[in-house]
Amino acid sequence: MIPAEFDYVAPDSLDAALRALAHGGEDAKALAGGHSLLPLMKMRLAVPTLLVDLRHVPGLRGAQRENGSWRIGALTRHADLQGRAELGIVGEATSLIADQQVRNRGTIGGSLAHGDPASDLPTILVAMEGTVSVRNSAASREIAAGDLFQDYMTTAIAADELITEVRVPALEDWGHAYEKFTRRAEDWAMVGVCALVRKGADGSCEDVRVAFTNMASTPIRATAVEHALRGQPLSSDAITGAAEQAAEGTDPPGDLNATPEYKRHLARVLTRRALSRAAGV
């Protein structure tokens, strides 16, 4: 399968890229690693008329620690992050994305901008309550994770805007786990559950975040689970009880591999497992 024709530019600065995007209008697309966009273009499910390739844009790759946060450049590849213990859940989740070849090309900014609810990183960002910095040729702004994902493959990022940076709290004293349920290792998540747990000195759950992949048209927080567990002892009973709330408020799309009912069931099971692992129970 072959992409339809398009025009192509590869500007050598962020400003030039933003100008090109603005000039290209609604049918212009930014190209980073291309591993979300090019597969759609090959199937002709996406037919942009202009690609603005960001490969010459400097300074957007790499992860830096700053004041309790990680600042991760939008063009940072999954492979740059995979398996890095100091990055916590980001290191864990990026190592589970697709396969090594995809991780070598795919970027964190591209994945977030694509806004696929079956992708892993949007869920991680939502769980971590991170933010993305976006810019157009006139201004820049921050978008909180909770506001970023609006609908299926629809984000708050305007057509003339680019993500430049992803900022997530380091959450160093939090336990973390991402339970990704797939048929095959390289597949998209049938359901994914990200759990972050901060254990208090008394062993109770001081704070907790749980977010789901592929349980709605966007990544979503499992607020009922969090509410049920926060302040409770981190016992396996408490975790099991809280995980029972996992399906509350979800509206998962059914697909080839899973009906909504089955996905809700998986969410409960995986939430329990993720919380247990994150809490070290």
Partner: peptide, 9 residues
């Protein structure tokens, strides 16, 4: 680095 050259322009 290994890449899938069908998904790289």
């Amino acid at each position: 680095e290994a890449v899938k050259s069908c998904t790289v322009l």
